[in-house]
Design a protein around this nucleic acid. Structure first.
Length: 353
DNA sequence: AATCCGTGGCC
DNA sequence: TGGCCAAGGAT
Protein backbone atom coordinates (compact mmCIF):
# COMPACT_ATOMS: atom_id res chain seq x y z
CA UNK A 1 0.00 0.00 0.00
CA UNK A 2 1.37 3.38 -1.02
CA UNK A 3 2.14 5.71 1.84
CA UNK A 4 0.06 8.90 2.00
CA UNK A 5 1.54 12.31 2.76
CA UNK A 6 0.99 13.22 6.41
CA UNK A 7 0.26 16.88 7.24
CA UNK A 8 1.71 16.36 10.72
CA UNK A 9 5.09 15.49 9.22
CA UNK A 10 5.04 18.83 7.41
CA UNK A 11 3.94 20.70 10.56
CA UNK A 12 6.77 19.07 12.50
CA UNK A 13 9.22 20.25 9.86
CA UNK A 14 7.67 23.74 9.97
CA UNK A 15 8.09 23.89 13.75
CA UNK A 16 11.83 23.60 13.20
CA UNK A 17 12.33 25.44 9.89
CA UNK A 18 9.65 28.13 9.56
CA UNK A 19 10.98 31.22 7.83
CA UNK A 20 10.93 34.41 9.88
CA UNK A 21 9.01 37.29 8.31
CA UNK A 22 7.95 40.73 9.61
CA UNK A 23 4.22 39.92 9.29
CA UNK A 24 4.39 36.32 10.49
CA UNK A 25 3.58 34.88 13.90
CA UNK A 26 5.94 31.92 14.19
CA UNK A 27 4.78 28.47 15.28
CA UNK A 28 6.04 28.84 18.86
CA UNK A 29 4.33 32.20 19.44
CA UNK A 30 1.17 30.94 17.80
CA UNK A 31 1.13 27.90 20.07
CA UNK A 32 1.46 30.31 22.99
CA UNK A 33 -1.71 32.06 21.90
CA UNK A 34 -0.35 34.99 19.87
CA UNK A 35 -2.69 35.94 17.03
CA UNK A 36 -1.59 37.59 13.78
CA UNK A 37 -2.87 41.07 12.94
CA UNK A 38 -5.33 40.59 10.02
CA UNK A 39 -4.36 44.01 8.63
CA UNK A 40 -0.72 42.98 8.38
CA UNK A 41 -1.57 39.56 6.94
CA UNK A 42 -3.82 41.15 4.32
CA UNK A 43 -1.23 43.79 3.40
CA UNK A 44 1.57 41.23 3.13
CA UNK A 45 -0.54 38.84 1.05
CA UNK A 46 -1.46 41.54 -1.46
CA UNK A 47 2.19 42.62 -1.71
CA UNK A 48 3.27 38.99 -2.14
CA UNK A 49 1.03 38.42 -5.16
CA UNK A 50 3.53 37.43 -7.88
CA UNK A 51 6.28 39.11 -5.87
CA UNK A 52 9.20 37.65 -3.91
CA UNK A 53 9.47 37.77 -0.13
CA UNK A 54 12.84 39.53 -0.38
CA UNK A 55 11.33 42.35 -2.44
CA UNK A 56 8.26 42.74 -0.24
CA UNK A 57 10.00 43.09 3.13
CA UNK A 58 11.16 46.71 2.83
CA UNK A 59 7.89 47.83 1.28
CA UNK A 60 5.96 46.16 4.11
CA UNK A 61 8.04 47.95 6.73
CA UNK A 62 7.53 51.34 5.10
CA UNK A 63 3.77 50.84 4.67
CA UNK A 64 3.15 49.65 8.23
CA UNK A 65 5.33 52.44 9.67
CA UNK A 66 3.42 55.07 7.72
CA UNK A 67 -0.04 53.46 8.00
CA UNK A 68 -0.13 51.20 11.12
CA UNK A 69 -3.75 50.08 10.74
CA UNK A 70 -6.52 49.85 8.18
CA UNK A 71 -8.15 53.10 9.31
CA UNK A 72 -4.92 55.00 8.74
CA UNK A 73 -4.50 53.49 5.29
CA UNK A 74 -8.14 54.20 4.42
CA UNK A 75 -7.55 57.88 5.25
CA UNK A 76 -4.36 58.10 3.18
CA UNK A 77 -3.92 60.27 0.11
CA UNK A 78 -4.12 58.25 -3.12
CA UNK A 79 -0.93 59.72 -4.54
CA UNK A 80 1.00 58.94 -1.35
CA UNK A 81 -0.03 55.28 -1.50
CA UNK A 82 0.81 54.97 -5.20
CA UNK A 83 4.16 56.65 -4.46
CA UNK A 84 4.99 54.17 -1.69
CA UNK A 85 4.01 51.28 -4.00
CA UNK A 86 6.25 52.53 -6.82
CA UNK A 87 8.70 49.82 -7.89
CA UNK A 88 6.60 46.91 -6.61
CA UNK A 89 4.73 46.53 -9.90
CA UNK A 90 1.20 45.41 -10.75
CA UNK A 91 -0.11 48.79 -9.73
CA UNK A 92 -3.77 47.74 -9.82
CA UNK A 93 -2.91 46.03 -6.53
CA UNK A 94 -2.25 49.41 -4.91
CA UNK A 95 -5.45 50.94 -6.25
CA UNK A 96 -7.44 47.93 -5.03
CA UNK A 97 -5.58 48.00 -1.71
CA UNK A 98 -6.89 51.49 -1.04
CA UNK A 99 -10.40 50.58 -2.19
CA UNK A 100 -10.35 47.55 0.09
CA UNK A 101 -9.05 49.52 3.08
CA UNK A 102 -11.87 52.03 2.66
CA UNK A 103 -14.54 49.33 2.40
CA UNK A 104 -13.21 47.58 5.52
CA UNK A 105 -12.94 50.89 7.41
CA UNK A 106 -16.30 52.28 6.34
CA UNK A 107 -18.50 49.20 5.93
CA UNK A 108 -16.97 46.66 8.30
CA UNK A 109 -16.08 48.92 11.21
CA UNK A 110 -12.38 48.44 10.53
CA UNK A 111 -12.61 44.68 11.13
CA UNK A 112 -11.54 42.26 8.41
CA UNK A 113 -14.02 39.44 7.66
CA UNK A 114 -12.73 35.99 8.70
CA UNK A 115 -14.67 33.90 6.14
CA UNK A 116 -13.52 33.26 2.57
CA UNK A 117 -16.81 34.17 0.92
CA UNK A 118 -16.87 37.59 2.60
CA UNK A 119 -13.19 38.23 1.88
CA UNK A 120 -13.71 37.33 -1.78
CA UNK A 121 -16.12 40.24 -2.16
CA UNK A 122 -13.37 42.75 -1.33
CA UNK A 123 -11.33 44.52 -4.06
CA UNK A 124 -8.02 42.85 -4.88
CA UNK A 125 -8.82 39.69 -2.93
CA UNK A 126 -9.15 36.57 -5.09
CA UNK A 127 -9.30 32.85 -4.23
CA UNK A 128 -5.70 32.61 -3.06
CA UNK A 129 -5.64 35.75 -0.91
CA UNK A 130 -9.05 35.05 0.64
CA UNK A 131 -7.93 31.57 1.69
CA UNK A 132 -4.59 32.91 2.94
CA UNK A 133 -6.17 35.57 5.15
CA UNK A 134 -8.82 33.19 6.45
CA UNK A 135 -6.27 30.46 7.24
CA UNK A 136 -3.29 32.50 8.43
CA UNK A 137 -5.00 35.38 10.23
CA UNK A 138 -8.00 33.45 11.61
CA UNK A 139 -6.74 29.84 11.66
CA UNK A 140 -9.65 28.56 9.61
CA UNK A 141 -9.26 25.33 7.60
CA UNK A 142 -9.02 26.93 4.15
CA UNK A 143 -6.70 25.72 1.41
CA UNK A 144 -4.23 28.12 -0.15
CA UNK A 145 -3.23 27.34 -3.72
CA UNK A 146 -0.38 29.49 -4.98
CA UNK A 147 2.53 28.69 -7.25
CA UNK A 148 4.34 26.89 -4.43
CA UNK A 149 1.37 24.67 -3.61
CA UNK A 150 0.80 23.88 -7.27
CA UNK A 151 4.41 22.73 -7.59
CA UNK A 152 4.38 20.70 -4.36
CA UNK A 153 1.10 18.96 -5.26
CA UNK A 154 2.12 18.28 -8.87
CA UNK A 155 5.21 16.50 -7.54
CA UNK A 156 3.61 14.81 -4.55
CA UNK A 157 1.01 13.20 -6.84
CA UNK A 158 3.17 13.11 -10.01
CA UNK A 159 0.60 15.09 -12.00
CA UNK A 160 1.79 15.70 -15.57
CA UNK A 161 -1.12 17.77 -16.86
CA UNK A 162 0.31 21.19 -17.79
CA UNK A 163 -0.75 24.37 -16.00
CA UNK A 164 -3.08 26.16 -16.07
CA UNK A 165 -5.24 23.16 -17.12
CA UNK A 166 -4.07 21.22 -14.06
CA UNK A 167 -5.17 23.92 -11.61
CA UNK A 168 -8.53 22.36 -10.60
CA UNK A 169 -6.93 18.95 -10.10
CA UNK A 170 -4.11 20.43 -8.02
CA UNK A 171 -6.61 22.41 -5.97
CA UNK A 172 -8.59 19.23 -5.33
CA UNK A 173 -5.67 17.22 -3.96
CA UNK A 174 -4.45 20.21 -1.96
CA UNK A 175 -7.88 20.58 -0.39
CA UNK A 176 -8.07 16.88 0.46
CA UNK A 177 -4.72 17.15 2.24
CA UNK A 178 -5.53 20.24 4.33
CA UNK A 179 -5.84 19.31 8.02
CA UNK A 180 -8.24 20.70 10.62
CA UNK A 181 -5.30 20.85 13.02
CA UNK A 182 -3.33 24.13 12.84
CA UNK A 183 -4.55 25.13 9.33
CA UNK A 184 -2.82 28.52 9.55
CA UNK A 185 0.56 27.02 10.25
CA UNK A 186 -0.08 24.32 7.65
CA UNK A 187 -0.83 26.88 4.91
CA UNK A 188 2.43 28.66 5.62
CA UNK A 189 4.26 25.35 5.93
CA UNK A 190 3.33 24.17 2.40
CA UNK A 191 4.45 27.48 0.96
CA UNK A 192 7.69 27.42 2.97
CA UNK A 193 8.31 23.89 1.73
CA UNK A 194 7.83 25.03 -1.87
CA UNK A 195 10.05 28.06 -1.37
CA UNK A 196 12.96 26.35 0.38
CA UNK A 197 12.90 22.59 -0.35
CA UNK A 198 10.54 21.79 -3.22
CA UNK A 199 12.03 24.56 -5.38
CA UNK A 200 11.48 24.93 -9.14
CA UNK A 201 15.04 23.88 -9.95
CA UNK A 202 17.13 21.33 -8.07
CA UNK A 203 14.63 20.46 -5.33
CA UNK A 204 16.28 19.24 -2.12
CA UNK A 205 14.40 15.95 -2.00
CA UNK A 206 16.97 14.42 0.36
CA UNK A 207 15.85 16.63 3.24
CA UNK A 208 12.14 16.88 2.36
CA UNK A 209 9.67 15.88 5.11
CA UNK A 210 7.44 14.43 2.37
CA UNK A 211 10.25 12.53 0.64
CA UNK A 212 8.71 9.10 1.27
CA UNK A 213 5.18 9.69 -0.05
CA UNK A 214 6.33 11.83 -3.02
CA UNK A 215 5.39 10.06 -6.25
CA UNK A 216 7.48 12.30 -8.50
CA UNK A 217 10.51 11.52 -6.36
CA UNK A 218 9.81 7.83 -6.79
CA UNK A 219 9.46 8.26 -10.55
CA UNK A 220 12.37 10.74 -10.74
CA UNK A 221 10.15 13.24 -12.54
CA UNK A 222 10.34 16.04 -9.96
CA UNK A 223 12.52 18.27 -12.13
CA UNK A 224 9.96 18.16 -14.96
CA UNK A 225 7.03 19.20 -12.74
CA UNK A 226 4.86 21.10 -12.81
CA UNK A 227 4.56 21.17 -16.60
CA UNK A 228 3.51 24.47 -18.12
CA UNK A 229 2.09 25.51 -21.45
CA UNK A 230 4.62 27.40 -23.61
CA UNK A 231 4.53 31.17 -23.30
CA UNK A 232 3.82 33.62 -26.03
CA UNK A 233 6.66 35.60 -27.52
CA UNK A 234 7.02 39.21 -26.37
CA UNK A 235 6.85 41.82 -29.14
CA UNK A 236 8.98 44.97 -28.98
CA UNK A 237 7.24 48.33 -28.83
CA UNK A 238 8.76 51.77 -29.32
CA UNK A 239 7.93 55.11 -27.71
CA UNK A 240 9.12 58.61 -26.93
CA UNK A 241 9.32 60.12 -23.43
CA UNK A 242 9.52 63.88 -22.96
CA UNK A 243 11.49 65.20 -20.01
CA UNK A 244 11.05 68.91 -19.29
CA UNK A 245 13.13 70.60 -16.62
CA UNK A 246 12.23 74.16 -15.67
CA UNK A 247 15.08 76.51 -14.77
CA UNK A 248 13.89 76.54 -11.13
CA UNK A 249 14.39 72.76 -11.02
CA UNK A 250 10.73 71.70 -11.42
CA UNK A 251 9.90 68.62 -13.53
CA UNK A 252 6.94 68.15 -15.86
CA UNK A 253 5.06 64.97 -14.95
CA UNK A 254 1.60 63.54 -15.51
CA UNK A 255 -0.65 61.28 -13.47
CA UNK A 256 -1.57 58.28 -15.64
CA UNK A 257 -5.22 57.22 -15.85
CA UNK A 258 -6.33 54.50 -13.44
CA UNK A 259 -7.02 51.96 -16.16
CA UNK A 260 -4.30 50.15 -18.04
CA UNK A 261 -0.52 49.91 -17.85
CA UNK A 262 1.06 51.75 -14.86
CA UNK A 263 -2.44 53.01 -14.04
CA UNK A 264 -2.55 55.68 -11.36
CA UNK A 265 1.21 56.22 -11.39
CA UNK A 266 3.26 59.32 -12.15
CA UNK A 267 5.14 59.34 -15.44
CA UNK A 268 6.73 61.49 -18.11
CA UNK A 269 4.49 62.76 -20.87
CA UNK A 270 5.02 60.72 -23.99
CA UNK A 271 3.88 59.18 -27.22
CA UNK A 272 1.88 56.00 -27.44
CA UNK A 273 3.90 52.79 -27.25
CA UNK A 274 3.59 50.87 -30.49
CA UNK A 275 5.44 49.82 -33.65
CA UNK A 276 5.34 53.39 -34.98
CA UNK A 277 4.70 55.87 -32.16
CA UNK A 278 3.40 59.34 -33.07
CA UNK A 279 5.39 62.25 -31.56
CA UNK A 280 3.38 64.10 -28.87
CA UNK A 281 5.53 66.77 -27.19
CA UNK A 282 3.74 68.40 -24.22
CA UNK A 283 4.94 71.87 -25.20
CA UNK A 284 6.86 73.70 -27.90
CA UNK A 285 10.57 73.74 -27.17
CA UNK A 286 14.04 73.02 -28.47
CA UNK A 287 14.02 69.27 -27.95
CA UNK A 288 17.17 67.23 -27.84
CA UNK A 289 17.20 63.46 -28.22
CA UNK A 290 19.48 61.63 -25.79
CA UNK A 291 22.05 59.23 -27.27
CA UNK A 292 20.81 56.33 -25.11
CA UNK A 293 17.28 55.00 -25.00
CA UNK A 294 15.59 53.46 -21.96
CA UNK A 295 14.94 49.73 -22.29
CA UNK A 296 12.40 47.97 -20.16
CA UNK A 297 10.52 44.68 -20.27
CA UNK A 298 6.93 44.44 -19.07
CA UNK A 299 4.88 41.30 -18.58
CA UNK A 300 3.91 41.02 -22.23
CA UNK A 301 6.20 43.26 -24.30
CA UNK A 302 9.66 44.81 -24.53
CA UNK A 303 9.85 48.60 -24.65
CA UNK A 304 12.51 50.84 -26.18
CA UNK A 305 11.94 54.43 -25.16
CA UNK A 306 13.58 57.34 -26.97
CA UNK A 307 14.16 60.24 -24.56
CA UNK A 308 13.69 63.84 -25.68
CA UNK A 309 14.73 66.51 -23.18
CA UNK A 310 14.53 70.26 -22.93
CA UNK A 311 15.13 73.05 -20.42
CA UNK A 312 12.66 75.92 -20.33
CA UNK A 313 12.93 79.34 -18.72
CA UNK A 314 10.27 81.06 -16.64
CA UNK A 315 6.58 80.20 -16.29
CA UNK A 316 5.11 77.97 -18.97
CA UNK A 317 1.65 76.44 -19.06
CA UNK A 318 1.94 72.95 -20.55
CA UNK A 319 -1.00 71.34 -22.32
CA UNK A 320 -0.16 68.02 -20.74
CA UNK A 321 0.88 67.27 -17.16
CA UNK A 322 1.93 69.47 -14.30
CA UNK A 323 5.19 70.92 -13.03
CA UNK A 324 6.26 69.38 -9.75
CA UNK A 325 8.67 71.53 -7.69
CA UNK A 326 12.15 70.12 -7.21
CA UNK A 327 11.60 69.83 -3.44
CA UNK A 328 8.48 67.72 -3.82
CA UNK A 329 9.74 65.44 -6.60
CA UNK A 330 10.92 62.01 -5.46
CA UNK A 331 12.24 59.71 -8.21
CA UNK A 332 11.43 56.81 -5.86
CA UNK A 333 7.74 57.52 -6.48
CA UNK A 334 8.10 56.70 -10.18
CA UNK A 335 7.45 53.25 -11.66
CA UNK A 336 10.69 51.62 -12.75
CA UNK A 337 10.53 52.42 -16.46
CA UNK A 338 9.94 56.10 -15.65
CA UNK A 339 12.79 56.07 -13.15
CA UNK A 340 15.10 54.68 -15.84
CA UNK A 341 14.11 57.61 -18.04
CA UNK A 342 14.77 60.02 -15.18
CA UNK A 343 18.21 58.54 -14.48
CA UNK A 344 19.26 58.95 -18.11
CA UNK A 345 17.83 62.46 -18.42
CA UNK A 346 19.22 63.61 -15.08
CA UNK A 347 22.63 62.32 -16.05
CA UNK A 348 22.47 64.25 -19.31
CA UNK A 349 21.34 67.47 -17.58
CA UNK A 350 24.11 67.11 -15.01
CA UNK A 351 26.74 66.64 -17.70
CA UNK A 352 25.48 69.60 -19.72
CA UNK A 353 25.01 71.76 -16.63
C1' DA B 1 -11.36 31.78 -21.37
C1' DA B 2 -7.73 34.39 -22.64
C1' DT B 3 -5.48 38.52 -21.94
C1' DC B 4 -3.62 42.14 -19.40
C1' DC B 5 -0.86 43.69 -15.72
C1' DG B 6 5.68 44.92 -13.20
C1' DT B 7 9.71 43.96 -11.38
C1' DG B 8 14.21 42.08 -9.83
C1' DG B 9 17.06 38.06 -9.13
C1' DC B 10 18.86 34.03 -10.94
C1' DC B 11 21.65 31.03 -13.96
C1' DT C 1 22.01 38.00 -22.20
C1' DG C 2 17.57 36.41 -22.17
C1' DG C 3 14.08 33.39 -20.44
C1' DC C 4 12.27 31.75 -16.17
C1' DC C 5 10.26 32.50 -11.93
C1' DA C 6 7.79 34.65 -7.58
C1' DA C 7 2.35 34.03 -1.53
C1' DG C 8 -2.57 36.22 -8.44
C1' DG C 9 -6.60 39.25 -9.64
C1' DA C 10 -9.61 41.69 -12.80
C1' DT C 11 -11.97 41.77 -16.92
Amino acid sequence: MREIANPDDLLHWYDRHARVMPWRVGPADRAAGVRPDPYRIWLSEVMLQQTTVATVKSYFERFTSRWPDVQALAAADDGDVMGEWAGLGYYARARNLLKCARVVANEHGGIFPDACDALLKLPGIGPYTAAAISAIAFDRAETVVDGNVERVMARLYDIHTPLPTAKPELTEVATALTPDNRPGDYAQAVMDLGATICTPKSPACGICPWHTPCRARAADTQSDLPRKLPKKEKPTRLGIAYVVRRDDGAWLLERRPDKGLLGGMLGWPGSDWSEAPAPAPPLQANWQTLPDEARHTFTHFHLRLRIDVTIINGPVDPEIGEFIPRQRFKPSELPTVMRKVFDLAHGAFTKIG
